[in-house]
Design a protein around this nucleic acid. Sequence first.
DNA 1: CAAATATTCAATTGAACACTTAAATTATTT
DNA 2: AAATAATTTAAGTGTTCAATTGAATATTTG
Lengths: 219, 219
Amino acid sequence: MLWQINFFSTVMDKSEFKQTIYTEIADMVKAMANPHRLEIIDLLANGEKTVEQIATETRISIANASQHLQNLKKARLVKIRRLKNYRLYSLTNIYVYAIWKTLREFARLQIPEIDKIVDDYRRVNNATVVSLNELEKYKPYLLVDVRPNEEFENGHFDEAINIPVSQLISNLNQLPKDKYIITYCRGPFCTFADQALEILINSGFKAARLEEAFVDVTR
Amino acid sequence: MLWQINFFSTVMDKSEFKQTIYTEIADMVKAMANPHRLEIIDLLANGEKTVEQIATETRISIANASQHLQNLKKARLVKIRRLKNYRLYSLTNIYVYAIWKTLREFARLQIPEIDKIVDDYRRVNNATVVSLNELEKYKPYLLVDVRPNEEFENGHFDEAINIPVSQLISNLNQLPKDKYIITYCRGPFCTFADQALEILINSGFKAARLEEAFVDVTR
DNA sequence: CAAATATTCAATTGAACACTTAAATTATTT
DNA sequence: AAATAATTTAAGTGTTCAATTGAATATTTG
């Protein structure tokens, strides 16, 4: 009576149940267990991007970026929107950024090297890092979002003005020397704000960078 | 002037900085991106275990369990305590369980299949699942911790009594028929409470299982 | 010190992964 | 309907990973 065997085989035993559950979760975690894919998630939190933009920003080939995006899509971490003859990639929902943020902070807790690398990198520029809750101390300050304009348009701190780091040098004359210039970008591992600091400090401004990104507050 | 090149080579460039950071984090995530290792983390949250216990509980060979534990140790998620002629493994700190809990809950959000599998498995026993904040509704109830005794000793809900599922049948006469018997074990993916429910319901008790584990409240 | 126990290590195998290159697909413009 | 642009897919290659096995290395106990 083969039909009976088939019928009952749909009921999982304890061991199969656990294996299925843990495999499902591990597959999702696996989708995040790659440096490029983590960087892509961090990037997409700032708004939709094309494959080309993602490839350029993360310094990998377009084909490679496409494959990583397919991985992320399969794990339901990224969604695709078709527009004319190109596609825009974005995070499936706000929880994807939230889990990356959680992982990132957990990693900093577990792996002291990470903070050491971050500190070493910033020490070269004598960069001061300010956390959102210390921002008051730097009053009067001017908050400058140094990300590309599209990302600024996609969402930014109310009080911030946008000067993409690529346009900073030509806009230095607009900035006040008597206020603290607080730069911010995509978060703790983004280097735009550091590049901006280098320019600002070398030009005689009082400047510091914000640790957090705009997405860290909203998501 | 070779010494200069060497001297400056210790300073990371932007690209190397990002690669190092994201690789460090990805390596840590990779250590969690395996079904057995996730199950081991879930298990160790209930207290120290020997390799043999871990191997038995997760239904893998001792040598295999040992290797997974070395992986987890290398990623600093698990620590080892030497005792006489055996070793006891435990989570490095409470944050390791916290991140697993976060991942687990994120996965349930992202992958609807997981809840479906859990529901399907439980429906076979007509098991009622109660969340901690709904517990009041089941008063008067008796909270029964059905995990092995060592895990109970390691920490449990104040009001709970301990009847390991292996000893439940011989202890049925101790249980009240007029109260709701609420069983709990190691959390949402543990099947001890379900096994207990099957016995209890077949024996005419009013019974349900708690979704959460004790560790979910403390950590 | 030898036997027993617990655990790791090392070697192997097959599977999965990341990356590159080139070809294929899809939609859009001419 | 052909040409173009954006992106994916497929094939190939080198690398890493999981699982298995049996041997090796402690550590304790008799």
